[in-house]
Amino acid sequence: MNKGYKLLVLTSCMLALVVVSLGAYTRLSNAGLGCPDWPGCYGFLTVPNESHELSVVEENFPNAQVEPKKAWIEMIHRYFASLLGLLIVVLCIIAFKYRFSNGPHVSPRLKHSIGLLVLVLFQGMLGMWTVTMNLQPFIVMGHLLGGFTILALLVLLLLRTHHSGITQARPNQHRSFLLAIFALCVLIIQIALGGWVAANYAAPHCSGLPICSNIELFSIKSLLHLPVGQSNYEFGVLPFETRLSIHFLHRIWAVVTAVTLFWVSWRIFYKEQNVEIQSAVKLVCTFLVAQLVLGGLIVHLQFPLLLTLFHNIMAALLLLAMVRLCFLLTSKQGVAI
């Protein structure tokens, strides 16, 4: 069971990264409403293209126009997300079967798997609300954060599976661990702000480097203007100055995040004389530099879709690198220098 289980967890991690990437591509290509219903597409399991199918669409969705490209982008995302949900169900069943494999107490693996199952069910509900509420930004951002959380928890499960025999230290007394957790929280806020930028279609409203071209429009007060009370939120409903302020806040916190992660990485690198931990620190810094470069290029090149997609993927990889570093700092492992 052990080898097969590890392979299943690894496959789930890779699939989760694909789902997060497809979700980002769906948002960036404006395909979120490619299928106006859920879980099918205009009442079908695939995108309708036959004449009799289009007749049904015209009857049931009289004001809709089928856009095959956008619809397929959305449906492919749903197919992969459904497969991921199925794999998480299988992980939960296996964990339940071997729940007492390490003694009389319930295995932490089972608790972890049940948490993942609950989260993926809620993520499915968010996916439905994203469509039925016509891309309401709070729901869209929640859906994005849910996908990142599922990916992070699957990677954490993979780490626990591969390091199941390691003696655990007491993280609440470990200064390096607390520093890493602090940096992780700062990074999560930055990811949430990035999700808020995407959900409100605010990226193009802050052009120019290092500050926005129309920075005089920035105001804290405008950030309190929330996207509510609309029937459709596609392409954004907030005024220009609010979207500019949202984007610029994301840039400000990016500086805070970069400074925090570099400082914490430097402290941990020289405090923890451990090869694996130092390697994890280097990986965090590498992903952070790549993310900063991508962010600058995206603005300079006027927000090309492919680079923006890589920016989303790099955010996920940076999050996973930080999760791995936090995990390693709770374990007495690695080869001492």
Rank of each mutant, 00 (worst) to 15 (best):
L297T: 07
L305N: 14
G295W: 03
S113G: 10
I252P: 01
G236H: 03
E50F: 14
N102Q: 15
G43C: 03
S213D: 15
R175N: 02
Q65Y: 14
R175V: 04
N274D: 09
V255T: 08
S29P: 12
S55E: 15
V18Q: 02
L223Q: 02
T130L: 04
I73H: 02
T161G: 08
H300N: 12
G32V: 02
M128A: 12
Q230S: 14
V89N: 09
H77L: 08
I337L: 14
A315Q: 05
L8F: 09
R78M: 07
V118I: 15
L151M: 15
K70I: 05
L28P: 08
L22V: 08
I215C: 13
L154D: 02
G147I: 01
V90A: 09
L15T: 14
G85V: 05
R160V: 00
L110V: 05
Q123L: 01
W196D: 04
F44C: 09
L217G: 06
H205T: 14
V118T: 14
V66I: 12
Y98A: 12
M75S: 03
V264L: 06
E67T: 15
R109L: 07
H205F: 14
L22R: 11
L178A: 13
H225W: 13
L10P: 01
I181R: 14
L45H: 05
V197C: 09
W263I: 12
V293E: 05
F218K: 10
L28D: 03
M314R: 00
I337A: 13
R27K: 00
M14L: 15
R99E: 08
I94H: 11
F148M: 09
V335H: 14
S176M: 06
P137V: 00
Y5S: 06
L116F: 12
A321M: 12
E74D: 01
S331D: 00
F148L: 10
N134I: 00
P39R: 06
I246A: 07
R170M: 11
V255R: 11
V228P: 02
V299C: 09
L156F: 10
L17I: 12
A199H: 11
I181Y: 10
I114E: 06
G229S: 04
C212W: 08
L187C: 11
A95H: 02
L320N: 10
F310Q: 09
G295R: 01
A192N: 08
K221M: 07
F327I: 04
L10E: 02
H112K: 11
I191C: 09
E272K: 03
P227V: 08
I166H: 11
N172M: 06
L309P: 10
V57R: 04
V293Q: 07
A316T: 06
A203L: 04
K6E: 10
Q302C: 00
L33C: 07
F100G: 01
V47N: 02
Q65K: 15
S29C: 11
G296S: 08
K69L: 13
G146Q: 01
S213G: 14
S213P: 11
I139P: 04
N60T: 15
L224F: 15
N232Q: 01
Q136K: 11
G43I: 00
